[in-house]
């Protein structure tokens, strides 16, 4: 299940926006161009049902990917991916959300 809104909205990436992929990969957290920030706002604003999140395995050192249920009280769905860098987790989730939004698989 994609964790971004599937409804029609007023912003979808245009072909030229593919340049933002590389900008994000180089620096997932921090200063971004206005165009990348707009894309990230789109990707991160999905509802809580099946929304990606992280569970701390080792503080500041290791995280496991999970999804929230969207129903208060209902547990997280733990996924298999683990990351030792927060940036790697961001890049992984970015690719999943990009695919859900555009249909394109990023390597």
């Amino acid at each position: 299940m994609p964790d971004i809104y599937e409804v029609e909205d007023n912003y979808r990436p245009k072909p030229d926006d593919r340049r933002l992929i590389e900008e994000f990969r180089k620096n997932p957290i921090g200063h971004h161009s206005p165009d990348l920030q707009r894309l990230l706002n789109r990707l991160r604003s999905g509802p809580m049902a099946d929304k990606y999140c992280l569970v701390v395995i080792k503080p500041s050192r290791e995280w496991q990917l999970a999804k929230t249920s969207g129903v208060p009280g209902k547990p997280l769905k733990m996924l298999s991916q683990r990351f030792t860098r927060m940036d790697d987790a961001e890049w992984y989730v970015f690719r999943q959300r990009w695919k859900a939004l555009t249909g394109e698989t990023l390597r």
Binding site: M48, V56, A66, T68, G73, L76, E90
Partner: peptide, 27 residues
């Protein structure tokens, strides 16, 4: 756990601890 804008405010994925997971199960 509950608010979609959390990831927008934080500019990244939300992190949960074992206390958060317990609290979600024990509202």
């Amino acid at each position: 756990f509950d608010v979609p804008m959390a990831q927008l405010l934080g500019g990244r994925l939300v992190e949960h601890n074992h206390q958060d997971i317990y609290r979600n199960a024990h509202r």
